[in-house]
Structure formats: C-alpha cells, structure tokens
Design a protein around this nucleic acid. Structure first.
Lengths: 155, 155
DNA sequence: ATAATGAAAGTCAATATTAGTCAAAGATAA
DNA sequence: TTATCTTTGACTAATATTGACTTTCATTAT
C-alpha cells in the first residue's frame, strides 16, 4: 500500500489529469477542499513534485479568478536541454532533485532504464557516504553535470 | 534449530510475506509494536538480514506516511565475479585501476560501451574535483562498488 | 480616476510524523 | 574468557501538515 500520505495522493491525482491533457488548471482552494487539506498544502505538493527538474512548468495568478496551471514540458523539444539542465543543477543538487532530473531524462528517452539506474546509484547519498552535506550535494552535481556534458558530445 | 532471538523471528516473518509477494512494505513502528521491540531493531534486522548480497533491495521514506519497503531481486550469474571485484577494489582505487576494472567489465560483456563511459566520467578525477587524493580514491571506490552491487541483480 | 473591498494565491515557520544512526549495555557462542 | 551478535534508547534527519500573515489582482464604490 503506497501513497499513504495526502501529498502523494494529490500528486497522483494531478498527474492522472496530465496523462490525458497537456496541462491542468486548478483553483487552489477547490483542490484543497477536495482532499480536505489546507490550501497551502497544494503549494507544498507543487513545490516538491512539480518542479522544472521533474519536467513541469507552473504558473499562477492571484486575486479574483486566480488559478494555478501546471504544464508538462518535453525537454527534448528544446535543442539545448542539457544546457538548461546543467544550469538548473548549478554546483549543488539534492538527492531528491537529482532523482527528478534523471527521471526526466529517462522519460524523454535521453537515458535508458539501466543508465538511469547507474547514475542514481552513483549519486546516492549512501554511495557517496560523505557526512558533509554541502560536499555531498556538490559532488552529486559534479557527477551529473559531468555525465550530461559527456552525453552532449556523444550524441 | 534454536533461532529464538527476536531478530530471527522478525526476519522469518518478513520472509514469509516475501514468499508470496514480490515485496513487503511496512511501517517501522507497527512491526516494532507487533514484536514488542524498539523501532530501531527493525533497522538492525534489515541491515543484517536483508542485504543486497542476500538478494534484497530496501528503500524507505520518512515523514508522514513513511514506510520501509523490502524487495526480493534476482541475483545474476556474474554475481560471484562482481563480488571478487568488489573485494579487490576495497575502499580506495586510483583512476588508472578503475579504468582497468571498467575495461574488463566491458570486455566481459557486463557493461556496454555507453555504460562503461558513464562510469568513467562519473569517477573521473576532474569530475569529482576534490583536492584530497585519498578522498578522491575512496569516493571512486564507493561509486564503483555501488554500481557493481547494483549490477548483481536484475531490474 | 481613485480608493476600498474582497477573493484569490504565496510564504514561512511551527509542529507533527515518520525513519536512520550510533554507541552502550546485555546476551550468546567459540 | 573473549569475540560476536542482539537489544535498547537517546539523538538526528527527512518529509508532511498546518495556519497565521502577506501579496496580488479584479471589481465595486466614491
């Protein structure tokens, strides 16, 4: 039984809509009501699960008639995906964001499953095994950026 | 058959579930309650009895709705070879030796060209970019050993 | 036009809910 | 006896939930 927390359930709900549509547009309070959570939890879900690393673009508007719109972007349409990703990663990246990045590359066909797994293992917290978090995140960034740069020349 | 300590009993309990299912997903505190032990004993059981060497993969999540998930995986035939390599590598390896290891894995067909390249990039001196040579060599070892451990099973 | 009002969404920090680590103490086996 | 394995619990870390307060925008009133 997975998804015991509400955030995961809301995530799945939104993604199920995105499976059929290019984008989803919601009213924050409606979704919050639907799942019986406070409105700001919707922001939490979006911030942790619909980032650009995950391949989503989010825009919103406040005030009357406000909305939140989530769009799935195909990174491959962009000629310089890799550049964009490298920029986003910068010089440090958490394991969670790294997972999102690798997952996106897999979904876009840049990496196959095995390659994606290899990268995740190589950059796993436990694999690196350093206790300094900043060092861990910067090593992870260097490894992933190094691989992305390699992929650019290779293809 | 005097495996009467609680760790053994918990181990059997979890394995009896895994006999019928591909994986088990537990809430740590629930299992701890069930057997009247402190939660951290579950970690002990997992760490000592559900290792990758035994063919188990473990993943977990903290926070609300957290869980520990244990999956039984199929160990591959080359597992022995990989074990040997892992031993040889130990806790540090130079870039030169790493190259040799990866090269031989490629020649043995364990890795394809692209995968081999990925690993070499990930463990390259410049990628890691640490000044301390000992740290560099130990990181390289950890990454390669992590990947080798991953290669021991399928999917 | 401008000001006032109300209706959204955003931010942030406090709190809650899990799991992980580690080392000391206790038990068992060699 | 000594080495190894097990049990325990205090402390740490990650993730989720909540709510008070802020900001933005559209509409209505002056």
């Amino acid at each position: 039984m997975q998804s015991q927390n509400i955030s995961d359930i809301i995530e799945k709900y939104l993604k199920s809509i995105l499976a059929d549509a290019e984008h989803v547009e919601i009213r924050r309070s409606e979704i919050a009501d639907l799942f019986n959570v406070v409105p700001s939890q919707i922001n939490y879900v979006i911030k942790t699960r619909f980032t650009i690393q995950n391949g989503y673009l989010v825009e919103s508007k406040r005030g009357g008639g406000g909305y939140i719109r989530i769009e799935k972007v195909n990174l491959l349409d962009d000629a310089d995906v890799l550049d964009t990703l490298i920029q986003v990663i910068g010089d440090a990246i958490t394991q969670r964001d790294a997972y999102a990045v690798v997952q996106s590359l897999y979904e876009d066909g840049v990496l196959n499953r095995r390659e994606a797994q290899l990268i995740l293992v190589a950059t796993d917290r436990n694999t690196l095994g350093v206790d300094d978090h900043d060092l861990e995140n910067s090593l992870r960034a260097r490894i992933i950026v190094g691989i992305l740069n390699h992929l650019r020349y290779e293809s």
